[in-house]
């Protein structure tokens, strides 16, 4: 046994005044209370979501048909469809993905693994964290100025490319922050082990650190893309239209996206439009689930591969 120092008279008297009561029933009670509290938190969240889904499915399922998926917007709710908006959303999201993922992950890796800790990088860090909280409409104004007006020769004005780039900017901070957090969670011993074996910095990052961080990075990307797919305000500013009779034919094509189409229908006076707005929400949800499903599938693959 470890030799103990004899207790001082002072601490002995304190112990005598406050003897140790296990009081287990009270402590287990608290424990149970906490479990109840967190369960009710989850129950409320799920109930709200469930109610919302139920309501949307109730309103939207009857009008969800293949004609709705292949139809163009129309003044009559029976003939109206989401086809251009669906394709617009897919086009825009592809742009967002191919721009924001490499840029965001690259910036994250640089800041976490390469950048020196000086005033400049700290300034950049603070700004990135703040940017994550900037209202989306501000990004819309930035996009309007930068992509629609200034870079008009490249983007073609109010086009798929301008919209996608604006949304990519919007979610860059989310991806950068997630990338950095994921990289930070990788134990340093792995990096040092790599260096000890003679690997270069690039080899250590690309072969060891990055694969371990990838699931975390993909989670951040899912969060970012999910935000981008539901955005309306910045795209209205950038110039997504509300009625379009053709589908995007390229990056320099006028476009609309599902949230704008849904909003346009939901604010109509006629009841049938409210029903197809609900159908539009279901379509948007399915696209979102497919997108996230693909990302989660990738994440799980990388997680398994690591073991």
């Amino acid at each position: 046994m470890i030799a103990q120092t004899p207790p001082s008279p002072e601490s002995a008297s304190v112990a005598a005044e406050r003897p140790y009561y296990p009081n287990t029933s009270w402590r287990y009670g608290l424990d149970r209370l906490f479990v109840i509290a967190i369960w009710s938190a989850i129950a409320i969240a799920i109930a709200a979501l469930g109610l919302l889904l139920f309501d949307i499915l109730l309103d939207g399922l009857p009008t969800l048909s293949s004609q709705f998926l292949q139809g163009f917007p129309s003044r009559s709710a029976e003939r109206a469809g989401v086809y251009p908006a669906l394709l617009g959303t897919i086009w825009v999201m592809l742009v967002v993905m191919f721009v924001s993922f490499p840029l965001g992950v690259g910036a994250g890796i640089y800041l976490e693994e390469f950048a020196e800790d000086n005033l400049f990088t700290r300034l950049v860090e603070i700004n990135i964290n703040n940017l994550a909280g900037v209202p989306s409409i501000i990004y819309g104004l930035l996009g309007l100025f930068l992509f629609v007006r200034l870079l008009a020769p490249i983007t073609g004005g109010r086009t798929v490319l301008s919209g996608g780039l604006t949304l990519a900017l919007l979610i860059l901070p989310v991806i950068i922050v997630a990338t950095r957090e994921a990289l930070r969670a990788v134990p340093d011993s792995l990096r040092q082990g790599g260096y000890a074996l003679g690997a270069t910095r690039w080899q250590v990052i690309w072969e060891q650190v990055f694969p371990i961080a990838l699931p975390g990075i993909l989670t951040g990307t899912i969060l970012g893309l999910s935000r981008a797919i539901g955005e309306t305000a910045p795209l209205i500013v950038v110039g997504a239209v509300a009625y379009i009779s053709f589908v995007p034919e390229g990056l320099q094509s006028a476009f609309t996206v599902l949230p704008i189409q849904i909003f346009s229908w939901a604010s109509r006076p006629q009841q049938p439009f409210h029903a197809i707005a609900a159908s539009g929400i279901i379509v948007l949800m399915i696209v979102l689930l497919l997108m996230n499903g693909a990302a989660i599938y990738l994440r799980n693959r990388f997680q398994k591969e690591r073991l």
Binding site: I236, G239, A240, V241, A242, Y243, I244, S245, F246, A254, S264
Partner: peptide
């Protein structure tokens, strides 16, 4: 003819 209608 490609007609687009915005609502801003």
């Amino acid at each position: 003819v490609q007609v687009t209608v915005g609502s801003s």
